[in-house]
């Protein structure tokens, strides 16, 4: 059962990721990435991280990608045109590097000696909350400063000068 779900998640996730990265229309890119992020959320759920799965959908699909969609529509971003100067060498090197990252990563991972899976830890909100306001309290408070800085920065960047 878990294996079947995992296979579906992996296949859908990879196909939608490829579409998200290769399709010419920006709207299709964004929507396809929504599907990929859903698959990541499903993976979290399979790994026992229920809270993160819900947070992933809430934050990524519900907020971040809506923002992307918003900007795509605001700019009325056109489909990507064929480049005037196609740079075959750069493209080949780029593809090669990405392939290297993928193949290399998988090769290294397969070679790793697998640790025996530890006892299942429940990733419920209570346990994560205790960690957040316990050992990680400084980082937790600091992230709000980061978000505020980003908020102000974004406002300054898009503000029109009168």
């Amino acid at each position: 059962m878990a294996a079947a779900v995992f296979l579906v998640v992996v296949v859908v996730g990879i196909v939608s990721a490829v579409v998200a990265m290769s399709h010419r229309s920006p709207v299709v890119n964004v929507l396809s990435l929504v599907v990929t992020l859903f698959c990541v959320a499903a993976s979290y759920a399979l790994l026992g991280a229920e809270f993160l799965a819900a947070a992933q959908i809430l934050i990524y699909a519900g907020a971040i990608l809506v923002l992307f969609l918003f900007v795509v529509m605001l700019l009325n971003a056109p489909e990507e045109q064929r480049p005037k100067e196609p740079r075959p060498f750069q493209r080949a090197v780029g593809l090669l590097l990405a392939l290297l990252a993928g193949v290399g990563g998988v090769a290294v991972l397969i070679g790793i000696e697998v640790v025996a899976p530890a006892a299942r830890v429940s990733g419920d909100a209570r346990a994560i909350g205790r960690l957040l306001v316990g050992p990680y309290i400084f980082a937790f408070e600091f992230i709000s400063v980061v978000l505020l800085a980003a908020l102000v920065g974004a406002l300054v960047l898009v503000k029109r000068k009168h």
Partner: peptide, 11 residues
């Protein structure tokens, strides 16, 4: 995750 699921989907 109860209500979190609901908020996530309604988003």
């Amino acid at each position: 995750v109860g209500i979190l699921y609901l908020l996530a989907l309604s988003a």
